[in-house]
Design a protein around this nucleic acid. Structure first.
Lengths: 192, 192, 192, 192
DNA sequence: GATGAATGAGTGTTCATTCAT
DNA sequence: CATGAATGAACACTCATTCAT
């Protein structure tokens, strides 16, 4: 009795979900508001009641991600720049990526479309920060790349290994392990 | 008197160049044929004299890339699957990437837009082939990933390190060196 | 304790005021109910509690004007058609115009928009009546125009002299004086 | 054989004509490009081949008017500021108004809609210039208004006397005559 | 008295594409 | 080789309006 429409959740939420779904299917630009509305069985105008523009929908989607990312960076900046911190950073990054997998895929596949929207820029910035946190400040170019490569493994591996056999959990675990090895090896060279 | 229009190169070529230029600036979907035509100072209809559709322009651009890639794969498949082959493969891939840098960036940033065009599919396929050639057929998941990570480093490093200081040549060389180390280390473990 | 909300006047009144304000700023067609509601800090639906349609708001605004106008005409029709009556008519018209200045400006600037609404038609009608009352019934075309021109001066002068220096009161007084002269001169010719 | 389509004149011209026709019938805002296109039996997109925006259509319409007006002002500014000049100015203005009658009516009835477009502003400016040229620079407010009223008669009389009996030519002639009298009378007082 | 959610019909505008010349 | 003129389909977005609560 508490709710008249048990299934309907929040409409804004449903719009976000369906939008992401379609953005992943056909890409951001090729997904029209008409399609989103039709799949939700509401009118286009209803979308505009909940979001000011199409861009707004995507912004609302990426908000969640941005926050997780920022927290991750904030945490790492508060820790001493040791190997241990970096290993933990990789571990946590892996979790964030796993949680927001489809959003990250959307981000990755639609870079051109999102480029001149706020969060396109923002995520570039954040990746740079992460990169900076991975490498020893005194490392030379090769040294830097050794560490940053670990980040690539965790980050791009998630997209690139879609067709590899095995569950996503297994693959993520394996990627993390390899990245961890890389980080450790890089550290050994540096201090060796 | 040999040529009436010394400067004009081939018009088809100029269209391709300008198109790529604009695709990189604003993305494939947001670049209209009108824009391309205007920047070339011809009419839209003129483009249709040289290319059947907008998609055709992008296909013609990616043709060159596809060929290099296929040759690379064909070469590697003809060699014994040794560490040395894989190191050479990485070296050659690096060259192909350097040569077609802007095309690869275009490919990377417009995945969603190109997804349901021929070459989108094709390049996915080719990347899988390359992945397969990098890893020992008997390696387990982690083993595979160790080798494939070297590929990630060379491939994604090119995009991700744009803002890093240093010339692109230096960075590519460093990426290749690190990837080579990774490959060697992976091999050592495997045979270790 | 007599009123719970001392400041709020009547909401209907506030809607009318804000609507007129916005109609004058951007014009009737370009003013949306959303804007009116936002400036009043209520919802669009609230407007519909007080007025049946957007047109209704404008009708309610012009009602006051229409009445003054009709009274003016009724008065003049009850008087003998002498010069003195016409001079007084001009004087009274000037007052009505001064009182409803912003409404008249609205009417004037939005003729096209109001054309197929009731009051658009009505005001045209009323202006014709006024015109008829100004001129001697036996006057020829030029004679008519001499008298009606006095009316133009009072009526259009109010809009056209906005940027002239001086207060609105001064300008209105001057306009009335000139119109009065015109009327008298016209009469002199007629009876001369 | 010279022309394949004898009747078609210039399409741009036909668009302008039809647009003005409809703007006068329903007002600028209430006339949609769909309507214009339908009445011309072309597609909306065809309009966009000839004019960049809806606003552009109206600008192109008013261009002609603006020029006549500017020439008129330029002429008057080059003459000595005598009564004779002003009488001639009125005569010429009357002609310009007669020629562009429907455009002026459009301008007059759609002030609100045109307000924040270029020519809305421009025409206000031009009317002020004309006003300045009518009156003696040394005249006081009432003196000014006496002269400017002559201008009102010619200008607004054209719109206000639509329903009066008589041909438009007759009415325009009568309006001009009365305005001329007013000017002369005003001058007499000034120099009297 | 007023709101939150939604609708249906429209708007101006842009796009890839075509074709006679 | 290339253009001028046009099209059909779509798009993002806005509006006045409704109605259950």
């Amino acid at each position: 009795m508490a709710k008249t429409q048990t299934r309907r959740k929040d409409t804004s939420q449903r719009i976000q979900d369906t939008a992401l779904e379609l953005f992943l299917e056909h890409g951001y630009e090729k997904t029209s508001l008409r399609e989103i509305a039709e799949r939700l069985d509401v009118t286009k105008a209803a979308l505009y009641y909940h979001f000011k523009t199409k861009e707004d929908i995507v912004l609302s989607l990426l908000d969640r991600l941005g926050t997780s990312f920022d927290e991750l960076i904030a945490w790492a900046e508060g820790e001493p720049p040791t190997l241990e911190t970096r290993r933990e950073l990789l571990r946590r990054l892996n979790e964030v990526l796993a949680d927001g997998a489809s959003l990250f895929r959307f981000l990755q596949e639609n870079q051109a479309a999102l480029r001149d929207m706020r969060p396109g820029e923002d995520f570039k910035e954040r990746m740079k920060s992460l990169g900076g946190l991975m490498a020893d400040p005194e490392a030379d170019m090769v040294g830097c790349i050794r560490s940053v490569s670990a980040l690539f493994t965790v980050y791009f591996g998630g997209f690139a290994l879609t067709d590899m056999e095995g569950t996503m959990e297994e693959k993520r675990a394996a990627l993390l392990q390899v990245a961890d090895e890389m980080l450790t090896a890089a550290h050994a060279r540096e201090t060796g």
